[in-house]
Design a protein around this nucleic acid. Structure first.
Lengths: 325, 325
DNA sequence: CACTGGTCTGCAATCGATTGCAACATTTTC
DNA sequence: GAAAATGTTGCAATCGATTGCAGACCAGTG
């Protein structure tokens, strides 16, 4: 920077001002500095600026299992929104290879990130709501029960309601649910919504954990039931489970939606290209990412933010649902 | 840090040494400092350390379209490897919403990242191979023709060869290729491998761009051919295209693999749970990420690294291939 | 012409760590 | 017992920007 200053015949202070607060510098000086900057190809040093300004320019997203494609689009939305505001997106997995949580306090550090977006409802972050020595933390998609962390998420309860109401509307009176892990907040909310719309329908629950494998398991469990006890309408709490469930049934010679109707959850892109195309509850993933980013940015800027931001789910009506046989 | 020093009755220099080079400090002093650190809950300031050490502790991954689930597992592998070495992973999309490249020189800056992993073969990075004023750049998955950037990738040519050799082995004498964008390096390599194994088989090429949509297009194009001109074995250069192609055919009443055999590429997790499960060429995605990370780390440390690192593809034999009808 | 007010710029301190050098203490060696 | 080697610690400079304060300069006013 002092090179630039020398070349422009001014002091480093002035160069700094031109670069970060051009308004206070006289027109002529400013131009001279800009010219010198261009000539020298000068680029500001981030570490120095951040040190002085006591900020980092980074927001970190903590994701459980980065390998899950569901998060890809969310991170995409986040990254774009943050880049627009001059922030970088740092991503980290909350889980180790073994499945246990990593040492996350590594990120709870104002000198590493200006804000944290937590996408893992099981992270041990319950007690850090008010702490002033930490960068602001918000949760997205999932959330932590009891913790007073701001939340951005889909209206999962309503999503569950939509799915089951749709099956009920088609005439299904025995509905199967393929759930998530029992303690999971998404599972609870979706289940609650599903039950609220079930009315007098019979409900059979299959255990699950959102993965393809558990969808496959559910298909086996369904087939193991006596034919008269098999639900005719299935609501899977994730598209991956819905997909694996469907292919399990198809492989065994059952027809979708002829024999069984299936509704998924998430609307990952691929499921609209299956045969038959999956009817599902859409989560506006990119929008969730965007919104979450905007909210951390607001908190970083010290603005008031809502405790809960709910996004609306939407039923994507495709080919896997029909009246019961 | 000076608080800690005072509490431990030593100078800040000593505290610094205890924290970054404990070996040179006397046992007793070290313990006193550690105690003071624990008592004060002291945490080092990254900006300051980075400023002084002239490094950033970050590696940035530049991804074309973060929304593509293919990259999720790769980033996962990278993130783990980098975290192990004390580096953070910064991810950024190389494309704007409009599809044009963003200003990438924003990342070509030694004060922002210590290393760059480029996953976009079309990024305008052709000319920065030797530049010493930049952090080291390597390419992964894709690469830039002509640029002397180190590469980490699958042996795509061999992948193409495996796929077609498999179809040939089953007896298919008319093979269809659903390719990527014409200029794309992956397209070229896979196509080359495919042709090398084709022998005297007839080849019909369908245009594609790796997306679900283009797979669907190809299904229409295939059906538009007179029945006698339809290839019986299809090699799609991505799983997404294979998947959309297959569902397009199934929806029209064709059978896989009875009427048509299909081989995909990538082995994204979901395709093993389709009905029928997709036969495909596996890319060790997490491994690619790991390897790429290890290689940037080596370059950052000033070690010699290979110009090209090839990983071996593997044919995942599943249910979508059979002898021609 | 002296004075006021406003605009612009530079000085120097600061952010929080790291590290070469020198000083001091403690051994080891001859 | 003196000299040399070794081990431990502190001083102070340094990384590269930002910013409060004060001084220089200029125009306008009485």
């Amino acid at each position: 920077m002092s090179d630039v200053a020398q070349r422009a015949g001014v002091s480093a202070s002035t160069v700094s001002r031109v670069l970060s607060n051009p308004g206070v510098v006289a027109e002529a000086t400013r131009e001279a500095v800009m010219r010198a900057v261009a000539e020298t190809g000068y680029r500001m040093n981030h570490a120095a600026r951040n040190l002085r300004k006591q900020r980092t320019g980074c927001v970190v997203a903590l994701v459980p299992n980065l390998g899950n494609p569901f998060f890809a689009k969310i991170l995409d939305g986040m990254g774009r929104e943050l880049a627009g505001a001059g922030y970088d997106l740092l991503v980290a997995d909350t889980l180790e290879d073994s499945g246990r949580h990593t040492r996350l306090d590594r990120f709870l550090d104002p000198s590493r990130a200006d804000g944290i977006i937590l996408l893992d409802g099981l992270a041990p972050f319950g007690d850090l709501a008010g702490r002033a020595d930490l960068p602001p933390v918000i949760t997205a998609c999932e959330w932590i029960e009891g913790a007073e962390l701001p939340r951005v998420m889909l209206d999962n309860r309503d999503g569950g309601r939509l799915a089951v109401a749709h099956l009920r509307g088609l005439g299904h009176s025995h509905i199967g649910l393929i759930g998530g892990p029992p303690g999971n907040v998404l599972h609870k909310a979706r289940r609650e919504g599903a039950l609220s719309a079930a009315g007098d329908a019979r409900i059979t629950e299959f255990p699950g954990d959102f993965t393809l494998q558990s969808g496959q398991q559910a298909a086996l469990a369904w087939q193991a039931l006596p034919a008269s006890d098999r639900p005719t309408g299935i609501f899977a709490f994730s598209d991956e489970m819905a997909c694996a469930f469907m292919s399990g049934l198809q492989r065994a010679g059952h027809h979708v939606p002829g024999d069984v109707s299936i509704v998924g959850f998430d609307d990952i892109e691929l499921v609209s290209h299956l045969a038959p195309a999956l009817t599902t509850i859409r989560q506006p993933k990119r929008e969730i990412g965007r919104k979450a980013a905007r909210i951390v940015l607001d908190r970083i800027a010290g603005r008031e933010i809502p405790a809960v931001t709910l996004l609306a789910p939407r039923l994507m009506l495709r080919e896997t649902t029909a009246p019961p046989p």
